[in-house]
């Protein structure tokens, strides 16, 4: 398994956890971003994710490298879903392992926050009466 990847099928959360697990790790933090059934009090039917794939992978690798520089991590993995994603399914899984929990917690938060700012992935929400690209307009 690669540390960063884009998937068109369900994210392999258990395999991602196994990927970051090492015998010297005292903690694994996993963030699973899931699809909610509503936004701004409007019912969401499903989401669609699109990526500029080569650059998305490159920006995800940058996050991995930056996190490894800033925290004493054993391993870190960032996996994102593309295409249609149903309510309740995982859109993103980030896993970090370290000897002690604090580094893994902090690195995991850094990774998801940075992903939302820099990685060229776009989310479209589908409603009963239309669809909208998220965050496109102020």
């Amino acid at each position: 398994m690669d540390a960063v990847a884009l998937h068109t099928t369900a994210l392999p959360t258990t395999a991602i956890e196994a990927f970051v697990s090492t015998p010297t790790s005292g903690g694994i933090v996993i963030f699973v971003g899931t699809v909610r059934n509503q936004t701004r009090n409007k019912a969401v039917q499903h989401l669609f994710f699109e990526a500029y794939q080569p650059m998305a992978l490159s920006e995800m690798k940058k996050i991995v490298e930056a996190a490894k520089t800033q925290w004493p991590l054993h391993k870190i993995a960032i996996h994102h879903r593309l295409g249609n994603v149903a309510i309740g399914e995982a859109a993103v899984v980030i896993a970090c392992s370290s000897a002690h929990r604090q580094a893994a917690f902090e690195a995991c938060a850094y990774a998801i926050n940075t992903l939302k700012e820099t990685v060229p992935i776009w989310k479209k929400e589908f409603f009963e009466d239309g669809e909208v690209w998220v965050a496109a307009h102020p």
Partner: peptide, 29 residues
């Protein structure tokens, strides 16, 4: 804007055959 797979600033001059990519507000995660 990105050129190939890197963000570029407004003063970047695109070289011949480089492809420019428009990056509207991202919303992954």
């Amino acid at each position: 804007f990105a050129v190939e797979t890197r963000y570029v600033s407004d003063d970047y001059v695109v070289k011949s055959r480089e492809i420019v990519v428009l990056i509207p507000p991202v919303s992954g995660g």
